Every structure is written in structure tokens, then in C-alpha cells.
Amino acid sequence: MKQFITILALLILNVTFAQDKNARATIEVDGVCGMCKKRIETAAVKTEGVKSAVWSIQTHELALIYDESKTNLESISESIAAVGHDTQAVKASDEAYQSIHGCCQYRKDEAKAGH
């Protein structure tokens, strides 16, 4: 009976770990303020498969938890660039960048100095 319970427990643990498709990653995203934080995190989380996104104003790092079977870092970066923020992998188009609020335009020295 002990052997049966041990084997059953191992099988359950194996199935549980096999189903975990979540990956953790950190990417660099340009921005300067709380409005940027909200925009970046919202864009990331709206990407199918992203479960968590937390961006640090101080370090410019976006900590992600995502389902690797549904998305990848390139897709997440594209979603963020589409709302005006550069990532390591994808630069926002000029049109997307110009659409963000003036105080959020991180490419300008005045915006950086103001925060």
C-alpha cells in the first residue's frame, strides 16, 4: 500500500509540473513616470498569455510572468512598442511615440530631467 501511495504521489507531482508553462523574464523598457508605468504594464498584460507585468520606474525593468505556449518576449515587446515605449528588442514607431503625453516622451532630455 505504501508503494502505491508513493507512486501515486509521484505521478500527481509529475503531472502538476508538466502543466506549468509559465516563464519568468525581465526586459528593459524605456519610460519615465507613473503614467508610463501604467501604459507599459497594461500593454503587456493585454498580450495574450501574459499573466503578470510589473515595471520599475527606477530600473526600467519589466518583470514578466507569461505562458510560453501562448506568447513570447518578441510579441510582448511589440505590444509595448505599439503604445509608444521602446524595448530592448523593438523600438516604438515615431507615430506611437508621439501619441504619448509630453511628460512621458522619454527620448527628450526635458522629460528625463522633469522626473
Rank of each mutant, 00 (worst) to 15 (best):
Glu74Thr: 08
Lys38Asn: 13
Ala44Cys: 12
Val15Leu: 10
Ala23Tyr: 09
Trp55Arg: 03
Leu10Val: 14
Val54Lys: 10
Thr59Pro: 03
Ala81Lys: 00
Val15Phe: 14
Glu110Phe: 15
Val45Asp: 05
Arg24Leu: 08
Ile27Tyr: 00
Gly31Phe: 00
Thr47Tyr: 01
Gly102Val: 09
Thr42Ser: 11
Gln105Asn: 08
Glu41Lys: 03
Ile40Thr: 02
Ile12Pro: 01
Val29Tyr: 03
Ile80Gln: 01
Asp109Tyr: 13
Cys36Phe: 06
Ile27His: 02
Val15Ala: 13
Ala25His: 14
Val45Pro: 00
Ile12Gly: 08
Thr47Pro: 01
Ala44Ser: 08
Asn72Lys: 15
Ala9Asp: 06
Lys91Asn: 04
His85Tyr: 07
Ala53Val: 01
Thr47Ala: 08
Ala82Leu: 00
Glu74Leu: 08
Trp55Tyr: 13
Gln19Gly: 15
Val83Asp: 00
Tyr106Asn: 01
Val50Ser: 06
Val90Trp: 01
Ala53Pro: 05
Ala113Ile: 12
Asp94Ser: 08
Arg107Phe: 15
Ala44Gly: 13
Ala23Gln: 11
Asn14Cys: 15
Lys37Gly: 04
Lys2Asn: 13
Ser79Trp: 01
Gln3Trp: 12
Ala81Ile: 04
Ser56Glu: 15
Glu68Cys: 14
Leu13Val: 12
Ala111Leu: 03
Phe4His: 09
Val83Ile: 05
Val29Ala: 00
Gln105Trp: 14
Gly31Cys: 03
Leu62Val: 03
Cys104Asn: 04
Leu73Glu: 07
Lys46Thr: 09
Cys103Arg: 11
Ile7Asp: 13
Asp67Trp: 05
Asp109Asn: 10
His85Asp: 09
Lys70Gln: 15
Ile65Val: 12
Ala89Gly: 02
Cys104Asp: 02
Ala89Trp: 04
Gly49Asn: 06
Val15Asp: 15
Glu48Val: 10
Asp20Phe: 12
Lys46Ala: 07
Lys37Glu: 01
Ser93His: 07
Asp109Ser: 12
Lys2Cys: 06
Arg24Lys: 13
Ile80Ala: 02
Ile40Asn: 00
Cys36Gln: 01
Gln88Val: 13
Glu41Ala: 03
Leu13Asp: 12
Arg39Gln: 05
Ser79Met: 04
Lys46Ile: 04
Gln3Leu: 12
Thr87Leu: 01
His85Ile: 08
Cys104Val: 04
Ile76Arg: 01
Tyr106Pro: 01
His60Val: 09
Ile57Cys: 04
Ala18Glu: 11
Ile40Arg: 02
Glu110Pro: 06
Val90Ala: 01
Ala81Leu: 03
Asp94Met: 09
Ile27Thr: 05
Gly102Ile: 11
Ala9Tyr: 07
Lys2Gln: 08
Gly31Arg: 00
Ala96Val: 05
Asp67Phe: 06
Val32Leu: 05
Asp94Cys: 09
Asp30Thr: 07
Ile80Phe: 05
Glu48Met: 07
Glu28Val: 12
Lys38Arg: 13
Lys51Gln: 15
Lys37Cys: 06
Lys51Asp: 14
Ile7Thr: 11
Asp86Thr: 05
Ile7Pro: 00
Thr26Ala: 15
Gln19Glu: 09
Tyr106Met: 02
Ser52Cys: 10
